[in-house]
Design a protein around this nucleic acid. Structure first.
Length: 235
DNA sequence: AAGAACACCAACCGCAAGGGG
DNA sequence: GCCCCTTGCGGTTGGTGTTCT
């Protein structure tokens, strides 16, 4: 026996919401509230929808404080910073962006921001005192302190041998901070993507600099525009 | 002009956590 | 402590519109 479905799928409507359903849900919630029970709500509101579907529709679309439309550069940077700190915790990230939903942020990341980062169009980041990273609107250079994160692009121009440096925060919470990192370097050239990987174990102490030289191969005699696609901490 | 490929995003699915009995 | 129900979350899918060939 599998898990019992949350509702009778044969009896509920699925797919896109009609304006009438939206109006019915919105009117009901604004008049009666959710009553703390989404499962019972569709029946009370006269909707042939699953409670989960109603909840999602309300939270992601019908709530009055929802902000529709494009993300600002400031929102981009907030998302990047928070993603570098806590990964795909979309609801937490969205809680820092008034009017944005976790679904919005997730979709935006997956469809646009990730590509933007890999293309190096988003500002670089700096380590903060808590070991996290921020994305100031600063020019990117290969000497900028590197982040510890995964799946985030980092654009810069380099020599065939790239040298990265990582500065621990001035008030490093763990002065004996030993880390193993994986590095993925991706180069986007016309019509192709070239990647290479490396790993390094480093031992960070307060005020100590770490650097790693990554031998970057020339492909077909031409250097593309490489970016650091992943620099992740391995525990 | 038409079909293919791509991009976007709303919605669904399944799992985990939390709370009440 | 256990079970059941509900909510919340993140990953994924699928429909639709747009761009490319």
């Amino acid at each position: 026996m599998g898990r019992a479905p949350c509702c009778d799928k044969a009896a509920v409507k699925r797919g896109p919401w009609s304006p009438e359903e939206d109006a019915a849900l919105k009117s009901f919630v604004q008049t009666h509230g959710t009553g703390g029970n989404w499962i019972a709500l569709p029946r009370k509101a006269g909707l042939k929808r699953c409670g989960k579907s109603c909840r999602l529709r309300w939270l992601n679309y019908l709530r009055p404080d929802i902000k529709h439309g494009g993300f600002t550069e400031e929102e981009d940077n907030i998302i990047c910073t928070l993603y570098s700190q806590m990964g795909s915790r979309w609801s937490l990230i969205a809680s820092h962006l008034p009017g944005r939903t976790d679904n919005d942020v997730k979709n935006y990341w997956n469809t646009k921001l990730k590509k933007k980062l890999v293309a190096g169009k988003v500002s670089s980041f700096n380590m903060d005192n808590n070991g996290g990273f921020t994305f100031p609107n600063a020019a990117i250079s290969s000497s900028t302190p590197l982040p510890i994160l995964s799946d985030v692009g980092y654009g810069f121009s380099v020599d065939p041998v790239m040298q990265f440096s990582l500065s621990p925060p001035s008030s490093c919470p763990n002065p004996d901070n030993s880390r193993s990192s994986n590095i993925v370097v991706v180069s986007s050239q016309q019509g192709s993507t070239v990647s290479d990987t490396g790993s390094v174990h480093h031992h960070l102490q307060q005020q100590q600099q770490f650097s790693y030289e990554f031998p970057y191969e020339l492909i077909n005699g031409e250097m593309g525009v490489p970016s650091l696609a992943g620099f992740s901490q391995a525990d």
